[in-house]
Simulated assay, not measured.
Amino acid sequence: MSTTTRHIYEENQHVAHNYHPLPVVVASAQDVWVTDVEGRRYLDLLSAYSALNFGHRHPDLVGAAVDQIGRLTLTSRAFHNDQLAGFCAALAELCGKDLVLPMNTGAEAVETGIKAARAWAYRVKGVPADSARIIVAAGNFHGRTTTIVGFSDDPLARDGFGPFTPGFDIVPYQEADAIEAAIGESTAAVLIEPIQGEAGVIIPPAGYLRRVRELCTRHNVLLVADEIQSGLGRAGVTFACERDGVVPDLYLLGKALGGGILPVSAVVGDREVLGVFQPGEHGSTFGGNPLAAAVGLRVVELLRTGEFQDRSATLGRHLKARLDALLGHGLTDVRVAGLWAGVDIEPSRGTGREVAERMLARGVLVKDTHGHTVRLAPPLTIQQSELNWAVDQLALVLAE
């Protein structure tokens, strides 16, 4: 370990220990490659949990940010700014919806979606005050606030942080009949990830989301889709819901919406749902700031071309074929949606963490989850040759 690296690790003693990062110190990045403080280069196959769908420092996004920084960065929503309306109009059009409520982090978008669903239940559906319930799926990951971890079934996220907010019913993921059984007169919404990311890229069978959509429509319940990780091109389409031909009542967006430059999130829906908020009932000092709006608008413009969705779909099929060839050779299961994969490691080959560390030594950044699963989520700008090289490194690691 060099003097520079040792010094940085010593400084990290002042960083709260809420993460267990891999032993690499990144100093710079461009597109799909990052460089550490020693000058070693690594292929990024994590993309900051899908926040970097367009790669590190995409020139169009950096340009939009730099231009806006030179003019105006923050006004708060106490005043209008000249970037917000255009961003919201473009994002609403991309989603096929009427209204956009901008926030900052993904967890804020989820909290906003929960508040919107409850307000809609009381003011539109006629649910008695303070009795609205929201159905969620086992294995979910929607963020880290106390309300959100209260309906997680992951002990690491939940234990030791109670008491928790009531009003949530947890049902098994991928079981539409369980959702139907849980719906009651006070049910406001079903909050669900079209593909569960933190759980290991769990992809429900075809028809599942379509059945959930039908149940929500029949029982006058909102379908709220958390597309914070799965959306904006990651799964080979603009939104993962499209894989099953479904349009939710509310989209929850984040991560890639900020282009990997700053936190940008949003709740997007039709006026009869998202229009329940009145001035003063919800807000954020930084939500909808002009810098975020300028970058977010450029993200939407990149997605309008369809290029990134097509790349994700095409390269995703290639990635699946390469990973499938490793089944029985160190992998026990492979799940791929666009350029997003969860691979389960044969226990005799090591834990997910150990595989991630060995991939790091070979110049590839990946991250483990839930013991023996490793997630792959390269920027959508990756070249097929780079993808092949990364899978080659995985094959070598599994053969060690």
Rank of each mutant, 00 (worst) to 15 (best):
L191Y: 00
D31V: 08
P204I: 10
T146N: 13
W340Q: 09
R322Q: 15
T381E: 08
L52D: 00
P347E: 04
V247A: 13
W33D: 02
A16Y: 13
Q13V: 09
E307V: 14
N53P: 05
H318G: 00
L331W: 04
A377T: 13
E185W: 06
Q309S: 08
H14S: 15
A399K: 14
L387V: 04
R218Q: 11
Q13A: 11
L232M: 09
F87C: 01
A293M: 10
P378D: 04
T146G: 09
N12A: 15
G39S: 08
P205V: 03
H14Q: 14
A90F: 08
D324V: 07
G126P: 02
P59S: 06
S348V: 13
F141P: 03
R234S: 03
I345A: 01
G113Q: 01
D333V: 10
D44W: 02
S47E: 00
R123C: 04
L45H: 06
V25W: 10
F151G: 01
A92V: 01
I8K: 09
N81Y: 14
E272H: 14
D333L: 10
G363E: 12
P59L: 07
P172F: 06
T75K: 15
A176L: 12
V201S: 00
Q13Y: 10
V247S: 11
A27P: 09
V300I: 12
T147C: 07
H7M: 15
G259T: 10
I202H: 11
H329P: 15
I203Y: 00
V37K: 00
E111S: 06
L376T: 01
E10Y: 07
E346A: 10
A356D: 05
E175T: 06
S47H: 03
Y208T: 15
A137G: 07
V110E: 01
L252H: 02
E38P: 12
A188G: 01
R123W: 01
V190D: 00
G259N: 07
A206R: 08
A157S: 11
H372D: 08
G86N: 10
A90C: 08
S284P: 01
G254T: 03
Q278R: 15
D324E: 09
N18I: 15
E38G: 08
A225G: 04
L262A: 12
Q174I: 08
F239K: 07
P163K: 09
L323D: 02
T146D: 13
Q13K: 14
H219R: 14
S2F: 07
H20K: 14
G167H: 06
E346W: 05
R6D: 11
E11H: 06
F54I: 02
F79L: 13
P102C: 10
A199I: 12
A16H: 14
I228C: 05
A132L: 09
K320Y: 02
G371I: 04
T147D: 05
P155R: 11
G258W: 15
F151I: 06
K97R: 15
P21K: 14
G342P: 05
V124I: 15
F161Q: 14
G160M: 05
L46N: 11
